[in-house]
Design a protein around this nucleic acid. Structure first.
Length: 354
DNA sequence: AAAACGTGGCC
DNA sequence: TGGCCAAGTTT
C-alpha cells in the first residue's frame, strides 16, 4: 500500500500554519515536539510563542533557572517535560557543543525524548526517513488496516510501528509524518471521521468495510478515585507560607500551599490539616475561616480541596529553607504553581484588595 | 509492563 | 456532571 503521494499532495494544500513550521530550526522543532506531547495544538501555540521569546536558543534555556522555566510552563501540565527540557538543553550545550544531535538513537538519549519524539525530530528537523507514531497516526493506521486488536495492546504497538517504518518515505519524511498528524487532527477524527474528505479513502480498509466508527478499539479506563484534600494558607505579619513539591511526581518542582489528603483516621478537615502541617513542616497551626472549595480532575484521580486561612499557634515558628518560603501574596505570581494553588493564590490577592 | 503524570475542550 | 481525548515518556 503506497499512500505517500496522495497524502503529501493533500498536505501541500492543507497543511496547518503553525508557529514552529515557520522559521524551522532543530531547536524550535524540539521545543514544539516536547510541548505537543499529550497536548493539543491550540493549547501549545501561546506557550510556544512565549517560550521562544524568552528562550530563543539552547544557550538561553540552558542558562535559565529551573524556576523560570517552570513558570513559563505553568498551565501546560506534565511538568517533567519542562524539567527534562531544561536538563536536555544543558546536556546539548555540554556534550554536543550547543547543537542538537540528528540521529534518532542519539536523540533518544536526551531526557524527555522517547521513540515518537526522536522520530519526529529526526524527520522534521533533519529530513531523515524515520517513522513517528503518535495518537493521531495510531488512529489513522488502525483504520487503514482495519485493526480489530485493541489499539494500545503490545501486539498492536508492534504492528503499527512496523507499518510506520515501512510506510515512511525516503523523501519528505518530516512532511509525511506531519501530514498524518494533521489528517488525524482534522479528518480522521476519533468520532465521526470525515471520510468523504479523506485523501486516503481508497487505502482505508475500515472505510471499505464501513467500520471506521468501530475502529480503533479502545479499552475502557478504570474509574478514577476521588480524594478529599486540605490546604493551609498560613499567614504571619503579612506574609504567607508556601512549600515546593519534590522534583519527582505530581506537579514536581512547583510550589503549593501545604496540606494533604484526608485520611480515615482524621476526625475532620481541621484535624487533617493540623496533622499534615505537623508532619510536613513540624509546626502547630490554628485553623481559621474556610477559604474556598476547589474541585479538580487530574489524570488518575479527582480531588475536592478545602482551603483554610490559618495562623501558627502562639510560640510556633517556621524557618525558611530552600523548599519553604514566607512570601508577600503579591509575589506569589513569581512562583510556579499548579492550577488549584494558583486559584487560591489569586483569591488571596483578590481578598487583600478589599 | 502497568501506572503515573496536567490541563482544557467537547459532548 | 463526568468520561474521553490530546504531536508520549518515565519508571
Amino acid at each position: 500500500m503506497n499512500f505517500s503521494g496522495a497524502l503529501l499532495k493533500w498536505y501541500d494544500q492543507n497543511a496547518r500554519v503553525l508557529p514552529w513550521r515557520s522559521h524551522p530550526s532543530p531547536y524550535r522543532t524540539w521545543v514544539s515536539e516536547i510541548m505537543l506531547q499529550q497536548t493539543q495544538v491550540e493549547s501549545v501555540i501561546p506557550y510556544f510563542e512565549r517560550f521562544m521569546q524568552r528562550f530563543p536558543n539552547f544557550e538561553s534555556l540552558a542558562m535559565a533557572t529551573q524556576s523560570e522555566v517552570l513558570s513559563l510552563w505553568e498551565g501546560l501540565g506534565y511538568y517533567s517535560r519542562a524539567r527534562n527540557l531544561h536538563k536536555a538543553a544543558q546536556l546539548v550545550m555540554a556534550e554536543y557543543g550547543g547543537k542538537l544531535p540528528s540521529t534518532s538513537k542519539q536523540l533518544m538519549q536526551l531526557p524527555g525524548i522517547g521513540r515518537y519524539t526522536a522520530g519526529a525530530i529526526a524527520s522534521i528537523a533533519y529530513g531523515q526517513s524515520e517513522p513517528a507514531l503518535d495518537g493521531n497516526i495510531r488512529r489513522v493506521y488502525s483504520r487503514l488496516l482495519a485493526l480489530e486488536e485493541p489499539l494500545r495492546s503490545p501486539a498492536s504497538e508492534k504492528l503499527l510501528w512496523s507499518f510506520a517504518r515501512e510506510a515512511c518515505p525516503n523523501e519528505r519524511a518530516g512532511d509525511f509524518n506531519q501530514a498524518l498528524m494533521d489528517l488525524g487532527a482534522s479528518i480522521c477524527l476519533p468520532n465521526q471521521p470525515l471520510c468523504p474528505q479523506c485523501p486516503l479513502q481508497a487505502n482505508c480498509q475500515a472505510f471499505q468495510q464501513g467500520s471506521q466508527n468501530q475502529i480503533p478499539v479502545v479499552e475502557k479506563k478504570a474509574p478514577v478515585p476521588h480524594y478529599i484534600v486540605t490546604a493551609a494558607v498560613i499567614q504571619q505579619e503579612g506574609l504567607v507560607l508556601i512549600q515546593q513539591r519534590p522534583q519527582k511526581g505530581l506537579l514536581g518542582g512547583l510550589w503549593e500551599f501545604p496540606g494533604g489528603k484526608l485520611e480515615s483516621s482524621d476526625a475532620n478537615l481541621a484535624a487533617c490539616l493540623q496533622r499534615e502541617i505537623w508532619e510536613e513542616i513540624g509546626a502547630r497551626i490554628l485553623i481559621g475561616p474556610a477559604f474556598g472549595v476547589y474541585k479538580h480532575a487530574y489524570t488518575h484521580f479527582r480531588i475536592r480541596l478545602h482551603a483554610f486561612l490559618c495562623q501558627l499557634e502562639p510560640g510556633q515558628q517556621v524557618t525558611e529553607t530552600d523548599s519553604l518560603r514566607w512570601v508577600q501574596p503579591s509575589q506569589l505570581a513569581g512562583f510556579a504553581m499548579g492550577k488549584v494553588d494558583r486559584q487560591i493564590a489569586e483569591n488571596l490577592n483578590k481578598d487583600l484588595l478589599q
